[in-house]
Design a protein around this nucleic acid. Sequence first.
DNA 1: TTGATTTATGAGCATAGACGCATATGGTTG
DNA 2: CAACCATATGCGTCTATGCTCATAAATCAA
Lengths: 123, 123
Amino acid sequence: MSSSYSGIVDGVEHEPMSDEALELVARRFAVLAEPMRLRLLQALVLGERNVNALVSVTRGTQANVSRHLQTLAREGILLRRRDGMQVYYSVADPSVFEMCRVVCGCIRAGLKKSSDAIGGIDG
Amino acid sequence: MSSSYSGIVDGVEHEPMSDEALELVARRFAVLAEPMRLRLLQALVLGERNVNALVSVTRGTQANVSRHLQTLAREGILLRRRDGMQVYYSVADPSVFEMCRVVCGCIRAGLKKSSDAIGGIDG
DNA sequence: TTGATTTATGAGCATAGACGCATATGGTTG
DNA sequence: CAACCATATGCGTCTATGCTCATAAATCAA
């Protein structure tokens, strides 16, 4: 059982994670802690999209969308591919979806009263 | 395959999540996006602890630790139990550890160069 | 080259939140 | 009651960051 768990779970059973490791983990969580970035990830589930397409889908300004895409790419969550004038972004690490899945389940389990707000997730 | 996925993954295949849902998810990520709160969760893996014990373990000030515990409890991640003068906190939702596990794997997979910093996670 | 199109970025503003200090609140003991 | 201990919180400060506006940079077309 102990070998099937890793990260904080296993880490604390043996020794606490280093400060640098904790900051890396916190940083990764922080990247996903923005609705606009989650919206962008949503739009990229089906495949790569260029910036303009993402601007349209997310109803954001071009500047803001571009910045968030930079952030996601810098943190290794998105890949950037240039094709002519367009720049296409795609999800580099599908595990972000795994994380969203866990969070959604977590929220629905814990907050029955908010089930309406997230009912559209898989209902 | 589509029914085995939920949340953003499935949500975007059918229809995008609502703004309120996205904010809930982002909020949940934000709670985990603080090193001190991760440290507290680390300390709570083995079971409930009172505030003073958590202050000692995390090397933080009493005020700051108390505040972070409030945040974690308010967001439904921790439970609060009063016993005389002490207040004991415990993890209400073990899925936070699942999330940390995913993130740690995600980081190690994507950042070989930083493997030293998080090598202590399960190594 | 000039102009059009797509994306990136610098500057400034506004807000959120993390922290420390001091103090309040809740609970126990004498 | 007073004294004391454990925890919570009001307040001020500081930093981080999200957003907009304007503009720069990159690319293609004519």
